[in-house]
Design a protein around this nucleic acid. Structure first.
Lengths: 157, 157
DNA sequence: ATTTATGCAAAGGTTTTGCAGAATA
DNA sequence: TATTCTGCAAAACCTTTGCATAAAT
């Protein structure tokens, strides 16, 4: 079942309606790369039709989230971001604090952590859409180089 | 070295000043339980002195964060929260999506996850102040009971 | 015909900023 | 005395809401 079909079905099941605006927001969610903000999705929608309001975009994104068609992502910059959830299901992310790049984190990495936590605390972690900050390989290496340089410079002086 | 001493030293190192307002904000951070918002810290400060402005509180909290004396916590309710970082160092949290309770997550649980990730992706996760959502033991049990009841009721009818 | 959805505009809440006067080193 | 800091007020920011009109079933 395609995303659109899922959306229509879920709407119908609740007595809600499939409108052109809702269709356009879903399309924009597919088309905009990365993890767009509501504003960015709104801009894409505006390319399709000029008189759609951003409040409609927000309202539609709320629905898509409820239906598990998008995940909400927080990169800690005070703006909500949205990510399309296709057949692949939930995604987990690593955010490099230094370069700002977002890296996907495969499910396998999460599952060990999840079961360890379930065993020790009885807590069922649910990391859908969670963004884990840190330093990526490249930035970590750069930082180590810098520390090395500082040390050797210190020794010379 | 006490928090206050660290704060004063860090300020001096940057040519910044130790003012009564900054002292009171640090004190409030120690005294308010849990993970207070800027507003809550502000209220505590106001008990000490009536004419301190909330913008000063925000500005001081920014400094304390830079100096690693507080961690910033996001419980996903659109309000930044602050947590005092004492000698114990960074804290990790589990947030129950159902009852809203916050549970501490000991360092040991994190470290396996961190080394696994470092080995597989070369990414150094840094979960200081990160809040991992999920379901706590009690809410998980309650949910399972409910599912059980629904099933047996369904069978009766 | 009935109910839901939309656009508009305005409000909402938290956090930030500009600036003149006060305080610190 | 030279900067930094503060309080005040206003702005900025993202998101939500109320309401009359329009659209969908």
């Amino acid at each position: 079942m395609s995303c659109e079909e899922v959306f229509v079905k879920q709407l119908r099941d609740r007595g809600l309606r499939y409108t052109p605006q809702r269709e356009m927001v879903l399309q924009a969610v597919h088309e905009v790369k990365g993890q767009p903000t509501a504003e960015e999705i709104y801009e894409r929608v505006r390319q399709l039709s000029t008189c759609v309001d951003i409040s409609t975009v927000y309202r539609t994104l709320d629905l898509l989230q409820e239906f598990n068609l998008v995940a909400v992502i927080d990169l800690g910059d005070g703006q909500r971001r949205y990510e399309h959830l296709g057949a692949h299901g939930p995604r987990y992310h690593l955010l490099c604090r230094s370069c700002g790049q977002l890296f996907p984190l495969p499910e396998e990495e999460i599952s060990h952590f999840r079961s360890a936590l379930a065993a020790s605390h009885g807590f069922a972690v649910d990391l859908d859409g969670v963004v884990l900050p840190g330093l990526c390989q490249a930035c970590l290496a750069a930082r180590e180089d810098e520390a090395e340089n500082t040390r050797s410079r210190g020794a010379e002086e």
